[in-house]
C-alpha cells in the first residue's frame, strides 16, 4: 500500500519536474544537466530528488526505441548485495535467451559486476534517498550497451572521472600492463578493489566506454558510465 502511495506521489512529481525543466530550457540554458549548482535542488523533496535519477533512467530507456534496438535488462531502485546477485543472474539468462555470443555475455557479466560493486561500495548513501541507482543493458544492432547511473559525492565523481580519462588515453597493451602493475602492487583495502575494477571495465569493453558527471547540489553528483560491447 505504501509503495502504491509512493508511486502515486512520484507520478504526481513528474509533471512538476517537467515544468521546472521547461522553465530552465525556456531561459535558454539546460541547467538540469549542465549547471554546476542547480539552484532549485535544495527545494525539492526526497521523492523529487529520487525522480531526477528516474527521469534520467526513463530517458535512457527511450533511447532504445527503434529498429535493431532492444532493452535486455533494466532496473531502477535501491542497491544492496542481493540486488547484484539477482541482476547479474537475470542479465546473463536474458542475454543467453536473446542469443548473444558466449564471449559477449561473459564480457557484459564481468563489466556489470564491477559497475554494480562500485555502486555498492562507493555509492553515496543518504538518509533521504538511500543508495539509488539505475541500470540499462540494451542491444543496439550488433552491439550491447551497458549503462549505470548512481549518486556519488562530487569529490569522488571527479576522482573517478580523472581515472577514467587516464584509462581512455591507453591502448589495449598499455591497459593490460597497467592492470598487471596495479594487481601486482595493490594493497587490499577495506573497501577493496579500488582501481582494478575500473581497469577491468576498460579492458572488457576494449576501452569503448563513456562517462558523465552531473552535479545535483553542492556535494552530490549523478555519475553515469556506459560501456559498449561489440557482439563478435
Amino acid at each position: 500500500m505504501y509503495d502504491l502511495v509512493r508511486q502515486g506521489r512520484k507520478f504526481m512529481m513528474r509533471p512538476i519536474i517537467h515544468i521546472v525543466r521547461s522553465f530552465i530550457n525556456f531561459a535558454g540554458r539546460n541547467l538540469f544537466f549542465n549547471a554546476t549548482k542547480p539552484f532549485y535542488f535544495n527545494l525539492l523533496t526526497a521523492e523529487m530528488k529520487s525522480s531526477l535519477l528516474e527521469e534520467q533512467y526513463i530517458g535512457l530507456l527511450n533511447r532504445y526505441n527503434g529498429p535493431g534496438k532492444k532493452v535486455i535488462t533494466s532496473f531502477h531502485g535501491q542497491m544492496d548485495e542481493e540486488r547484484i546477485s539477482v541482476l547479474t543472474y537475470t542479465a546473463e539468462h536474458q542475454l543467453d535467451k536473446e542469443g548473444a555470443r558466449r564471449g559477449s555475455v561473459k564480457k557484459i557479466f564481468n563489466i556489470l559486476i564491477e559497475m554494480l560493486q562500485n555502486i555498492l561500495l562507493h555509492g553515496k548513501v543518504t538518509e533521504e534517498v538511500g543508495n539509488p541507482f539505475s541500470l540499462v543493458i540494451a542491444q543496439n544492432v550488433d552491439e550491447y550497451e551497458l549503462s549505470c547511473t548512481n549518486l556519488v559525492e562530487t569529490e569522488l565523481a571527479t576522482k573517478i572521472a580523472n581515472s577514467l580519462d587516464e584509462l581512455k588515453k591507453m591502448n589495449e597493451k598499455q591497459l593490460k600492463t597497467h592492470y598487471l602493475e596495479v594487481l601486482g602492487n595493490e594493497q587490499y583495502s577495506v573497501k577493496g578493489g579500488a582501481g582494478l575494477g575500473l581497469i577491468t571495465i576498460a579492458l572488457k569493453c576494449n576501452n569503448q566506454f563513456t562517462f558523465s558527471s552531473t552535479p545535483v547540489n553542492d556535494k552530490l553528483s549523478l555519475f553515469t558510465i556506459t560501456a559498449v560491447i561489440f557482439d563478435k
Binding site: L183, G192, G197, I199
Partner: peptide
C-alpha cells in the same frame, strides 16, 4: 566461471 576484481586480489594473496 567469473571472478571479480576484488576476488582476484584476495586469491592472489
Amino acid at each position: 566461471e567469473y571472478i571479480s576484481s576484488s576476488s582476484i586480489i584476495t586469491l592472489k594473496q
